[in-house]
Design a protein around this nucleic acid. Structure first.
Lengths: 221, 221
DNA sequence: CTCTTGACACCTAGGTGCGAACTT
DNA sequence: AAGTTCGCACCTAGGTGTCAAGAG
């Protein structure tokens, strides 16, 4: 019982988090050394993580004074393919991962933009969509169903220097939140994930029954 | 029968229109001398104008390479107050305009942003809302009902020069489209305006009857 | 009388999981 | 059996004019 059905949207938000400390090699604020990112809806993420899987991302925190590109990609967590055993309510390894091309990069549609622009409001990645169609031509992220993924977020400083390639190693910064790992599925497997989705997503209100609270924190068999 | 009910939204779109000619005093592309703006949905605007009134704006065209602020305001067209005579289907002057404070300026929420940012996609002013409430504290444009208005669009170059005030006179540019003038109302007066709205706005499909085409070009009494 | 307000039905647009039908 | 697809009912969110009721 993992994740959301493919073709789901992800959201990232990146309000500014002033933090100049930790900037390496005396880099200015408009580089990425001081950039901090933090996960939003942390408690909800933990609830999903405890059930063994998840789906949507929400982040916050950042630095800038110059131009940045924001992007996301998805890394496969291990070289395994899974299936769900309903009788034991657990995921089992069924073999090696299917082979696929490396993840596409999803540029935030406002990229590139200056730090002030990113900081002006919560940045949302709600245009990012997932698919299991290897031939997808809509620019969606292509994932393999029944494989486990880790979403990753990148901040890239657009260096105007003529020899910017010399600084490439320090002009970007990546963030991964372990609790956002999820199993890609085309239909929910874990009934508890389904219930937590229904309880926490307003668009699924139609499927709510009485006392949804009891089901949200549910930890029994 | 004029315009939309107050508290309606307006839209402006400003794709880039490359045009360096006409730039005065040898100004660079990042000033406003070469900025051009053109009205979108021109035919529809004309249809409304021929019926004597209107409502929503759609524009396109622009210049830039540096930072700009985009804004809108509303000018009262004349010093008159109107009322609609149903028997003659026409607007009559009923006296002098009511007094009010000058129009608020509505900054496009993405302002300030660089030209490339504005050009990246169609710029929309769909957050601009109208009201007749003089005490409005939602930042809406305050208009007097039964008065006639001309929407106006401004492009302001954010001059980084220390003596930028010396260039103020040439750092902005304003655009008005006569066919976008409208009568502010709290309820439609002119039945033909109502019908044209219903025929051309998808959100009003619920009020459409058979052959709406016949009513759109309607020019009888 | 002239004008304004607010509840309302009806749309657009699109995010949910459901469950039957389908493929392998 | 295991996994995938697609139409569906049900939501959120908010843009339309209508109409009855109200204010001045």
């Amino acid at each position: 019982m993992e994740g959301p059905p493919l073709s789901h949207s992800c959201e990232l938000s990146l309000p500014f988090c002033a933090d100049g400390a930790g900037s390496p090699t005396g880099a200015k604020a408009h580089q990425v050394g001081g950039v901090r990112v933090q996960l939003e809806m942390h408690t909800l993420w933990q609830q999903f993580d405890q059930l063994g899987t998840e789906m949507i991302v929400q982040i916050s925190g950042m630095d800038p004074t110059a131009e940045y590109v924001l992007l996301m990609d998805f890394l496969i967590v291990d070289d395994k393919r899974y299936r769900y055993a309903f009788h034991s309510s657990s995921w089992l390894v069924t073999g090696r991962a299917d082979v696929v091309a490396p993840s596409r990069m999803h540029f935030h549609p406002d990229s590139p933009a200056c730090g002030a622009q990113w900081m002006k409001q919560t940045v949302s990645f709600d245009t990012l969509k997932l698919t299991n169609n290897l031939l997808d031509d809509n620019g969606h992220m292509i994932l393999n169903s029944m494989h486990r993924y880790q979403p990753r977020f990148h901040v890239v400083y657009v260096d105007p220097a003529p020899d910017s390639h010399l600084n490439a190693y320090r002009n970007f910064c990546s963030f991964s939140f372990p609790e956002t790992r999820f199993m890609a599925v085309t239909a929910y497997q874990n009934h508890r994930i389904t219930q937590l989705k229904i309880a926490s997503n307003p668009f699924a209100k139609g499927f709510r029954t009485t006392d949804p609270q009891n089901r949200v924190g549910y930890s029994g068999p």
